[in-house]
Amino acid sequence: SSQSQGISSSSTSTMPNSSQSSHSSSGTLSSLETVSTQELYSIPEDQEPEDQEPEEPTPAPWARLWALQDGFANLECVNDNYWFGRDKSCEYCFDEPLLKRTDKYRTYSKKHFRIFREVGPKNSYIAYIEDHSGNGTFVNTELVGKGKRRPLNNNSEIALSLSRNKVFVFFDLTVDDQSVYPKALRDEYIMSKTLGSGACGEVKLAFERKTCKKVAIKIISKRKFAIGSAREADPALNVETEIEILKKLNHPCIIKIKNFFDAEDYYIVLELMEGGELFDKVVGNKRLKEATCKLYFYQMLLAVQYLHENGIIHRDLKPENVLLSSQEEDCLIKITDFGHSKILGETSLMRTLCGTPTYLAPEVLVSVGTAGYNRAVDCWSLGVILFICLSGYPPFSEHRTQVSLKDQITSGKYNFIPEVWAEVSEKALDLVKKLLVVDPKARFTTEEALRHPWLQDEDMKRKFQDLLSEENESTALPQVLAQPSTSRKRPREGEAEGAETTKRPAVCAAVL
């Protein structure tokens, strides 16, 4: 046999249950609850290399294929790409003598399909299967379609040439079993990697079954959420508030809700932002270029202005709740996480202390139980975000031990490091100062900020419009641009040419 590394010779191994799959997660993409704000000051410096380099560890398999027929071997997927077919160049070659004697062998292509993985959001991997055969590759009886790919989820059954000719079961060793999710959700989405997690739940990458488009699904544990919100009269209202707010909003710089499922837990389906959180971008770069800050901040102002015009105060604006559309420097941003939002009543007064301390406005800290506050709290938070983006460190921090965090904020005395700000323009610093004003009545509004000289930049605004146009074009394009080929190089076993392929839609398939 010419099988590559990772293939075992026996096809009769006992199949494990899916609970053996491991679970991976990374930083929070968007969480309903406010958790302790991640610290920006503690960015690790590059460490000196050791005298002796450690040995390379043996790579762990990321997936496993269990053979369902004699003549096929099990495969431990270690590499990122595997070709399957009769050709000797394939990493998994159909060359077992037992297999060659079967009637089905002649229906398999020289290069029938490939399984591979690509880097997705949060640097996690996504597994795909890609059909290159004349007679078809099927996943859970659905045709992939020649020249098309679809994501592979845990426990997928792979069939060759005929939908009933099941050859492998695919085990993704990095994700959960699909069966743990409600059927209504599974009918519409293929669940994938964990993108982030918080005290009350997690955010998962998923794929729409009909279109193969990526989405983010925010899962909120009702049990954990009820415990964490025990002081509230009705904890469920917080989730329902977020859903109702998101459904009503329609702005290019605000995250869109696509679906909602109320089962044992809450499942909020949101558009996916491939670039992750602004927080991670700031930490990764230490600070952002001023031109990049301007492009992002302009969009934040437009989003918050839209919220305020619609009578909504976000109340928890922070870099973790600003998501980026891509890994590119120039990209769209979207505001997310409306769990603490407040729809303005007639009095415009709110007395609930919520939000993240580092970003809270002075009037929030001094008015607990005594007075109210209004939309100006969001403008203060925007000032803190702009400060961080321009400088790479927070204006107020618990680690300045000589003054408490509350006193720093209520006095408006931010930590100004001259040598850092020497590289920032006077106009940018002036806008920061106009937003970090203790008196909410004297603080800049979103309208005033948008009129500030720093943002009178036609090149930046043109760039934003171009990015918007690109997004609109990409969302308007159909996901499947061509029909699967019906040509046949070899006959199917026991049926006429093209008899099955043309009847089945290529579900969740995307043209390369």
Rank of each mutant, 00 (worst) to 15 (best):
A361S: 10
K489A: 05
L278H: 02
S341Q: 01
E309R: 09
G372R: 11
A291I: 05
T292A: 11
E346N: 10
I313C: 02
D316T: 03
P491H: 14
G355K: 06
D337K: 03
D439E: 04
T501E: 08
F444Y: 13
E447W: 08
E426H: 14
Q408M: 06
F261M: 10
V424I: 12
L436E: 00
T370N: 10
K258V: 09
S397D: 10
E328S: 04
V403G: 07
S348A: 15
K294E: 09
D280I: 13
F260E: 12
I312H: 01
V283Y: 03
E448V: 03
S326W: 01
E244L: 10
Y373P: 01
D337I: 05
K342D: 01
N259H: 04
G369W: 15
L431F: 08
G276T: 02
P394L: 10
I343T: 15
H399N: 10
A361T: 02
V368Q: 11
P319H: 01
M350P: 05
N415C: 08
G494V: 04
T292W: 11
D316L: 00
S348W: 09
S474M: 14
M300I: 15
S425L: 01
N472Y: 08
V269K: 01
S404L: 01
Y266C: 14
S325A: 08
Y296N: 11
A510S: 07
G412R: 10
S485C: 03
I243R: 05
F297M: 14
E320R: 04
T352C: 03
E398T: 00
E264L: 03
C354Y: 02
Q479A: 01
D407C: 09
V403E: 14
Y373R: 02
F396L: 01
G383D: 02
P478S: 09
L468M: 07
H340F: 04
L450Y: 03
K256H: 05
L332I: 09
A376R: 10
A376P: 12
A371I: 03
E290D: 12
E471Q: 14
V438M: 06
T292P: 12
D439R: 11
E320I: 00
S469C: 15
L324R: 03
D457F: 09
D265F: 04
R287N: 15
M350V: 06
W421E: 00
P319F: 03
D330K: 03
A303V: 00
T352W: 00
T356V: 00
R351W: 09
G412V: 06
K294V: 08
I333L: 05
E328R: 06
K503T: 06
L288Q: 09
N374K: 08
K342G: 01
K289H: 12
I335M: 14
E448L: 15
E473L: 04
R315I: 06
S381V: 01
I243G: 13
V283T: 10
A371T: 08
F444V: 15
Q479S: 07
C331Y: 12
T356Q: 02
T410Q: 15
T292F: 00
E448C: 15
A371M: 08
I257P: 01
H340S: 02
G383P: 03
R488Y: 13
K489M: 07
S485P: 04
L390Y: 03
M350Q: 05
T370L: 12
I343D: 12
E264A: 09
D262E: 09
C508A: 04
L436M: 06
N250M: 05
G372V: 11
P252V: 12
F416E: 12
R504S: 07
Q483Y: 07
I254T: 05
I313M: 14
V364G: 06
A361N: 00
L477V: 03
Y359P: 01
K334T: 12
Y267L: 10
L467P: 06
P440N: 09
L323V: 15
M460V: 11
V507M: 11
G311T: 11
T292S: 06
L307T: 01
P252S: 09
S404K: 14
R492G: 10
P418L: 05
W380T: 04
E473G: 00
E329T: 09
V432G: 14
N259K: 08
F261K: 06
N285F: 10
A509M: 11
G276Y: 05
V368L: 10
N250S: 07
K461N: 11
V364K: 13
G345N: 14
R490W: 08
P362V: 02
K247S: 04
D330Q: 15
P478H: 06
P505G: 00
E274F: 13
F260P: 07
E320V: 03
Q408N: 15
A361F: 02
R504G: 03
V322L: 07
P319R: 05
L288R: 05
T475P: 15
Q483A: 11
G284Q: 11
I335D: 00
T347Y: 14
V282R: 03
E329G: 11
W454P: 03
N285S: 09
L302I: 10
D430R: 04
N285P: 05
N310V: 04
E320W: 02
Y373E: 02
I257M: 07
A482G: 11
K427S: 14
Y298E: 06
F416Y: 14
A449S: 06
E346M: 14
A496G: 07
V364I: 10
S411W: 02
P418A: 05
T401I: 13
A509P: 06
E290V: 09
R375N: 12
D265Q: 13
I335Q: 01
T486V: 13
F260M: 05
Q483L: 09
D280T: 05
A422G: 03
F338V: 02
C508H: 12
E458D: 10
L246V: 03
K503E: 11
T370S: 08
C253R: 05
A263K: 15
E271F: 09
I385T: 04
T336D: 03
L295I: 11
M460L: 02
L481F: 04
L512R: 14
S381T: 13
S326L: 12
V366A: 05
K334Q: 03
L288V: 06
C508I: 09
E244G: 15
K342L: 03
K281D: 04
K248P: 00
R462A: 12
